[in-house]
Design a protein around this nucleic acid. Sequence first.
RNA 1: GGUCUCAUAGCCGAGUGGUUAGGCACCGGUCUGCAAAACCGUCUACAGCGGUUCGAAUCCGCUUGAGACCUCCA
Length: 491
Amino acid sequence: MENQLFIYNTISRKKEKFESIIPQRVGMYVCGPTVYGDAHLGHARPAISFDVVFRYLQHLGYKVRYVRNITDVGHLENDSDSGEDKITKKARLEQLEPMEIVQYYVNRYHRDMEALNVLPPSIEPHASGHIIEQLEMIEKIFNNGYAYLSNGSVYFDVLKYNEKHQYGKLSGRQIEDLYEYTRQLQGQTEKKSAYDFALWKKANPEHIMRWNSRWSEGFPGWHLECSAMGTKYLGEYFDIHGGGLDLQFPHHECEIAQNIAANQTEGVKYWMHNNMITINGQKMSKSLKNFISLEELFSGQNNLLLKPYSPMTVRFFILQAHYRSPLDFSNEALSSSEKGFERLMNAVKTLEKIVPAQENTVDVENLRNSCYEAINDDLNTPILIANLFDGVKIINSIYDGKEKINQENLLIIKQIYNDFVFNILGLKDEAKNSVENQETLKNVVDLLLNIRLSAKQNKDFATSDKIRQELGKLGFEIKDKKDGFEWELKK
RNA sequence: GGUCUCAUAGCCGAGUGGUUAGGCACCGGUCUGCAAAACCGUCUACAGCGGUUCGAAUCCGCUUGAGACCUCCA
């Protein structure tokens, strides 16, 4: 029951039962960022979605090798007609070494991912560190007759490939459909047909990032790194390949073609694609310049933001939608996530305060089963969260004395919240490491509230209200209980 | 122009051929010296038009609208 995981496989367009190729082991490759700018909300989505996949597979007892690459060469820029690559352009602009730019943004990417509580992958290979592997792959493709040389550049021969294989299999396209609207690109004349793509690009004189090869001094094509690095670290056939929906075509389609052309295997068993984050109904992306960086989100420094949102608010916001649905950004939505997340965290804290009874009136088994059912159904985190909120009602009712829980079930429900909230969804209590744990401050606040309690007992409400009010101004929330009080510090 | 996806209450977002998703907001109640928190309750939707069906928001068709990909993109 607990490991009946079903995953929606893009290539079959169906939910399929997950069965790893090698028992108890999973190889997973996810397309990482191109490091020429700060990570934005859109980057958080695959990172978090596949972080949950990574966490859940481990929870199920799999030993997972998770590879997420860093793209630091090769991507041609949209508005540049010189065909220079993105990293190079930024470097010349700012008079820095290309690798200095790469390092700068990689560091910042790591910082943002850590804030979001995204676990680091097992291996994080750089495209620039795998030029040899990419050259070897081109060699294989070339020798198998699916590539041709033109002006020092090597192109993949899509028409040739399509004679025996189906180019467009992943994205459900027919090659004829592609023909009509293909844009006129620089270098088009070098290609035999419009949909051929570069495996190796000869570098222009001003192009700084370049490597020697038997064809020319140049750099690898845009789709090759994932094929080469995936194969190197996970083998020619591995379990899961993930990435954004926008990479489905042509990027992942080209990967499949390269894998078959080089190794006679598609390379991947389950293809998973996360949907986009939109803003005003339109995809958030660097090229559309409608993005909000994670740093801005956390600090509130962006005109689109009414206030800052904490990393866990952002994570919770993303998890409240299914990974294959589009998710629209809005301040209202983020704010509700913030409050909802707080409610969930409060219940988890309440759980620690519950004293078990002899009798039991709650059904925690049912709760646990519905949680597994949700996550097993193609990682349905919104349903999982809804179930956890049902549990919040149970927890609060117990704490209010309206329901009873025995020792055994209390341990189970604690386990459920620990597993699902922290280990699988990867949420964490952001207030945890703050003042509430600082002994001295805690004592001081308790002291004040004990004075207030005496004042209340003496019907000196002026004093008691003043204490509550002043503490409130400092961010403390006071909750009066039957025989005393509770408090917590709101950020 | 081609391929495809989606249209759910004030907002965000699941799901389903017949039974309450959930969160946030609002309103009412319990509790409280007053609050807060918590709990309970109210409101209760599936773009429009046809069709299939005992029954459709869920299946089919059409219309309208939105989006993605076809070009770097998470």
